[in-house]
């Protein structure tokens, strides 16, 4: 464990807590894409298949349970909770996430570290995580007023993977044979997808104006 990875995990945890806070306290999911939340639930479900077979550390297991539990409960809230589901913007959240899942699955069948079920699912989860934010970014472009919690959620979600990139650089230079091209390329693509959001988020913070993405 290094400071970059810890910062990344804590930032990721905060993004999930910000979203749960928003949904649980004000019972609203306005501006949140259910498609992205469903993709994240799928990412964690396929990434953490080894949660009961390979024990890494208490920290690792607890964090996996938190990410699995929070992502599925957010999907449940947005689909089933009578108050929250009313604030879900079904008409605007129309990104067909099937067209993200299928290419990632096909790519994982071709590009993986080993052609086993677990390794293919692991590669799939990395490719899918890289693009899972797209429905959310599309929804942000469509909904004019982005409330603070939603903006903070997306910002933290992007920042966590940026911290991970520093973690991979650090581990590459400090651990022999630490090479994970699939993780590195997916993580880089994921972070780049946030680039324009970061740009507008930073400007709105600098000029102290409401976050507004160009149409």
């Amino acid at each position: 464990m290094n400071i970059f990875r810890l910062a990344g995990d804590m930032t990721h945890l905060m993004s999930v807590l910000v979203l749960l806070l928003k949904i649980h306290t004000i019972k609203s999911c306005a501006g949140i894409s259910l498609k992205t939340q469903e993709l994240y639930a799928l990412v964690f479900a396929t990434r953490y298949l080894d949660i009961f077979t390979d024990f890494i550390s208490v920290y690792n297991t607890i964090m996996k349970l938190i990410f699995l539990g929070s992502s599925f409960s957010i999907v449940w809230y947005m689909r089933r909770h009578k108050l929250v589901r009313r604030s879900y913007d079904k008409e605007q959240d129309t990104f067909r996430h099937f067209f993200l899942v299928l290419p990632c699955l096909l790519l994982a069948l071709v590009m993986n570290e080993k052609f086993t079920f677990k390794e293919v699912m692991w590669a799939f989860s990395l490719y899918l995580e890289a693009v899972a934010i797209l429905p959310q970014l599309v929804l942000l472009q469509r909904t004019k007023n982005i409330d603070n919690l939603t903006g903070q959620y997306v910002f933290l979600l992007g920042a966590y993977r940026a911290f991970y990139i520093f973690n991979w650089i650090y581990r590459y230079f400090t651990e022999p044979h630490y090479v994970h091209w699939i993780t590195w390329i997916s993580g880089l693509v994921q972070t780049l997808l946030y680039a324009d959001f970061f740009y507008y988020y930073f400007n709105s913070w600098k000029n102290n104006v409401k976050l507004h993405l160009p149409a």
Binding site: R5, R47, D54, I56, Y164
Partner: peptide
């Protein structure tokens, strides 16, 4: 068979 190192990252 060459066992892959454990995935220790989240």
């Amino acid at each position: 068979n060459m066992e892959l190192p454990l995935k220790d990252e989240l």
